[in-house]
Amino acid sequence: MIKLEKLTKIFDSYGHQVMAANQIDMEVPSGEICVLLGPSGCGKTTTLKMINRIIHPTSGKVYINGEDTSKLCDTELRRRIGYVIQQIGLFPNMTIEDNICVVPDLLGWPKAQSRKRAKELLEMVALDPSVFLKRYPAQLSGGQQQRVGVIRALAADAPVMLMDEPFGAIDPINREIIQDEFLKMQQELNKTIMFVSHDIDEAVKMADKIAIFSQGELLQFDSPDRILANPINEFVENFVGADRAIKRLRLFTAADALVADATTSIGTEPVVSLQTSLTDASAMLYSSGAERLCCVDADNRIVGWLGHQQIAARLAQAPQASMEKEALSCQKAC
């Protein structure tokens, strides 16, 4: 869990006081990904970097798993937090193995243990350890370097990760692939992640929570669904885009708009699986010109169908109130 309490940063530039982050309050529950989103200079990166004190806060507090981090010294705090930056920052003088083992070595792990860990992590991102352990960063492609950058942050098994536009420098096709890989990894790892992005599509794809920033203020902090459905003001509405309804489709799958009917007969209409996102399902509807799509489950058994109306109806539903919020207000009441 990461909790920010009235976190504030005022920069002093040539006598002018610049409010980079104003009294930011937010809480990211354990195991969730929170994407900090906004135009450049909005304070999202400043907020992220105050958590591991790359930028020292002017005031306010940061709690990690309930512990007030102001009691820790900088290096101790940072070793407990995984950190990924856009430029990756692999050290060119070290092998991939040594790069991954930087934090375990700083923490004084036995060598055998940290080297074993490096091997496991490389396997996790499908890079053959026998090939890559002894290579240098310059010998890796951009995508491979980015994967190593991510697993380096995971090396000491820190429960919390900060990622500053980690996939920003990769071409769009590879970015999709690495995002998918990362989401799959996160399902097993359950890290608490703060993630800075300027790309609304990336945010919708990755986030459990989105925090929208503008001019040092946190404007809206909510689930992607609710941000897309109910932008809090004009700025957020413009920022998420006029096509926000279509973006919302990505949050649902065919299962969410299904008319269950096992007797549906397969004719000429396209077939989709239960996990197909509504974005892809609508694309298939429009491109095929069919009235409806036939839906099958994992064992290829027909489970039902869906058409334009069902998808529209799903979008018309108000987003669910967030469970955490209810839980929180309940706690407060108690």
Binding site: D74, E76, R78, Y83, I88, R152
Partner: peptide, 8 residues
């Protein structure tokens, strides 16, 4: 920055 962020 990476080195700082990793707690060196």
């Amino acid at each position: 920055e990476a080195a700082r962020g990793m707690g060196m």
